[in-house]
């Protein structure tokens, strides 16, 4: 029993990590091609057909570069910081369900690495740890631009964590469970949380953008002011790890947004079409992937459409708009539930 659990978990973890890392490589490629499209350029199209092998070339290049550590940097922490970043980014995926369950080799396999009954708290806890990677990298580089980037990012993440946590409460109230699988199961048919919880969705989306340090909230690495922000002093694979972590974060938060608000792996009324169960399971996974890809494209689209916020605007938005909105959402949701359920 326990060996079977360990074997299936290992297979699932390996598969998911491979998918995410490939996804990261190709979302970088997608980012470059889409940004080129938006800015009327061509983008990378030389390596392989339509530039599809570009990510592999990039990875090879980054691996072969010289690894430079500044002389006055605090070396152990300088090395540790990118590891923390990538650890946090990859661990969050553990509780996200990417399908119901699939019947293979005469047993039911749940398409989720761990169905923890405190799934959302797990995600919030891990994202709150993401600050360390960035702050420590900024501090240990012994460079004022890096330190500024690190501090900005910590302040930003701490401010938006609150509205992120609060905007989830609405969903939890509706579902009555913290398990992500339950939340997805609750959104059958068209009862997606984006329709039932529009304010929660918007606040969560904005907070997710801020948490992943993506434009329009990419102040930690604001090139014109801070050179490159917290990763100014990083080179070679350590820089690549930050890069990887940023895109992995983007993919993971897309999966979380899809799970919480866009119905997860649910395809409306798929179970009623009378298809064989294996096809249904595969279609559900496929639906999940399509939704996540759409979300990633949305992330990229926003980055190349909206200019960066000023720092005070960012803080004002976080504390004076998002937080009251999220709180109001909780109160309204609780009231409506109290009225209609009694």
């Amino acid at each position: 029993m326990i060996t079977e659990l360990i074997i299936t978990s290992t297979i699932k973890i390996t598969l998911v990590i491979i998918v995410i890392l490939t996804g990261v490589a190709y979302s970088v490629y997608a980012e470059r091609r889409i940004s080129a499209l938006i800015q009327n350029r061509i983008g990378p199209n030389r390596v392989g057909p339509a530039g599809l092998l570009q990510p592999i070339a990039d990875v090879l290049k980054l691996l072969l570069k010289e690894d430079i550590v500044p002389a006055k940097a605090t070396k152990p922490i300088h090395t540790l910081a990118p590891m923390i970043s990538i650890f946090v980014a990859l661990c969050t995926i553990a509780v996200v369900p990417f399908g119901d369950s699939i019947h293979l080799f005469s047993r039911d396999i749940r398409l989720q690495i761990a169905d923890v009954n405190i799934g959302i708290l797990y995600i919030l806890a891990l994202t709150s740890l993401g600050v360390y990677g960035i702050t420590l990298s900024g501090w240990s580089s012994n460079n004022k631009y890096s330190l500024f980037g690190g501090l900005r990012s910590s302040a930003q993440m701490i401010s938006y964590e609150l509205s992120m946590g609060l905007s989830v409460v609405g969903v939890i109230l509706m579902t009555g469970s913290l398990s992500l699988q339950d939340i997805v199961l609750h959104q059958f048919g068209w009862k997606w949380n984006i329709i039932l919880q529009p304010i929660g969705f918007i606040t969560f989306l904005v907070a997710a953008f801020a948490e992943t340090n993506r434009a329009p909230f990419d102040l930690p690495e604001a090139e014109p002011e801070l050179v490159g922000g917290y990763h100014t002093e990083y080179s070679s694979m350590k820089f690549a790890l930050f890069f990887l972590a940023e895109y992995a974060n983007m993919i993971v938060s897309s999966t979380v947004i899809v799970t919480l608000f866009l119905g997860g792996w649910q395809f409306p009324y798929l179970q009623t079409f009378g298809l064989p169960p294996l096809v249904v399971s595969l279609l559900q996974v496929f639906t999940f992937v399509i939704k996540v890809v759409a979300m990633i494209v949305f992330f990229i689209w926003v980055r190349w459409s909206i200019p960066r916020f000023r720092y005070d605007q960012l803080m004002n938005l976080g504390w004076k708009v998002m937080l009251p909105l999220a709180l109001a959402n909780i109160v309204i949701t609780a009231l409506l539930i109290a009225i209609f359920r009694s």
Binding site: L121, A125, L126, S128, L129, Y132, T135, S154
Partner: peptide
């Protein structure tokens, strides 16, 4: 999970700050 969320995620970040 609260141990990680509150102590490691919030309080120690402020300390580090």
């Amino acid at each position: 999970i609260i141990q990680v969320l509150v102590y490691a995620g919030a309080i120690m970040v402020l300390f580090l700050f």
